[in-house]
């Protein structure tokens, strides 16, 4: 399979966002280390791309790179947004895109809001920046509409409130209102519900889904919760140690997970009729200690015969639209050889 074909396989015609060979490196000591390593993926309009992986896999680093929000990182590769490489944009041009055409929802809604600014003004600022011509009055009207849209009761009252006066769920709604104020075409949500209770999580995910339907936006949904991905995503990318190890449509990924990492993750969440959970040995290594040669996941499945591993695992398309970084995954098994839990094997 040729590279060009492969890249096209991951993407579709005219994707909203097409990332090619993106690498993001952080400086530690006097050396740069890649936290995102040669990632290529695409997002279409009206599509939710889920990104899963343990913490430290590079999910946030990837999201921040797309928004170009990193301060001191070295970023290489192409980020084509509506066909145009935004890596070449000047800061002022980038500012026109951010908050307008592409927007982000952050994980921790308390720290993501300015503690000394009434929330109404924080939402209004996004409007002011991208639609400077609308009147102050009209802007306030729009903010009130947005507050209503994200399900905040008594918008007039909340408009004047400060973040600390609101509950976690309310704050996350404010963060979302900021993100959707200008109807972005691309919405990146970095663990939007991790800090919230399940019932609030369900409401927030519902809201994101509805907004996506309304605006036909492309959504990148980052999470470490496989249940959230299963409910929300159209396609899923599994990230480990800065690389995408598997990418597939959501049903294939859950019913026919191939990469050992994907299978391990799925097997570590509690499921029906499972007494013991699978434990992925070891931890995601710190950036400086990531194995850069060969498969990065290899050291966490030491019971697999070393000769079974591939020298330089690459993403291969094993089924249309289903890519795995490895050809030798067929030899993978769990150490106690018991049945894998989960929903796959068709249900």
């Amino acid at each position: 399979m040729q590279t060009s074909n492969r890249v096209r396989g991951i993407s579709v015609e005219n994707p909203l966002l097409q990332i090619n060979h993106l690498s993001t490196s952080f400086r530690i000591g006097d050396q740069y280390y890649r936290a995102v390593d040669d990632v290529s993926l695409s997002v279409n309009k009206n599509e939710v791309l889920g990104i899963v992986g343990e913490s430290g896999s590079g999910k946030s680093a990837l999201a921040y790179s797309i928004m170009r929000l990193h301060n001191r990182a070295k970023i290489e590769g192409e980020i084509l947004f509506r066909g145009k490489d935004i890596m070449t944009l000047k800061n002022s041009e980038m500012n026109k895109l951010r908050g307008n055409d592409m927007a982000m929802i952050f994980q921790d809604p308390l720290t993501a809001l300015n503690p000394l600014m009434p929330v109404g003004n924080q939402i209004g600022e996004t409007l002011l920046l991208h639609q400077p011509n609308i009147s102050k009055h009209e802007r306030k009207e729009r903010v009130l509409e947005l507050l209503h849209l994200v399900g905040i009761p008594r918008p007039n009252y909340v408009y004047e409130q400060f973040p600390h006066e609101l509950s976690g769920g309310m704050r996350q709604r404010i963060v979302i209102a900021i993100a959707i104020a200008n109807k972005p075409e691309l919405l990146i949500a970095d663990e939007p519900t991790t800090a919230l209770d399940v019932t609030i999580q369900a409401q927030i995910l519902d809201l994101i889904r509805e907004l996506k339907e309304d605006m036909h936006s492309g959504v990148i949904l980052i999470t470490h919760d496989l249940g959230v991905v299963a409910e929300m995503a159209d396609r899923v990318a599994v990230m480990y140690a800065g690389e995408i190890v598997e990418i597939a449509d959501v049903v294939s990924l859950f019913e026919n997970p191939l990469h050992p990492y994907t299978r391990s993750l799925l097997n570590s969440v509690p499921a029906e009729g499972q007494d013991r959970l699978h434990v992925i040995q070891g931890i995601v290594p710190a950036l400086q200690y990531l194995p850069r040669e060969g498969c990065r996941f290899r050291e966490r499945i030491p019971w697999i015969d070393p000769s079974a591993h591939e020298e330089h695992p690459e993403l291969h398309e094993v089924e249309p639209g289903h890519f795995v970084r490895c050809t030798c995954f067929k030899q993978f098994y769990f150490p106690d050889k018991r049945e894998e839990a989960g929903i796959y094997g068709n249900s």
Partner: peptide, 15 residues
Amino acid sequence: KRLVAAIPEINPRHR
């Protein structure tokens, strides 16, 4: 009931 219903469904076919 509401709490139980809010648990994310792990099978994408049933969502």
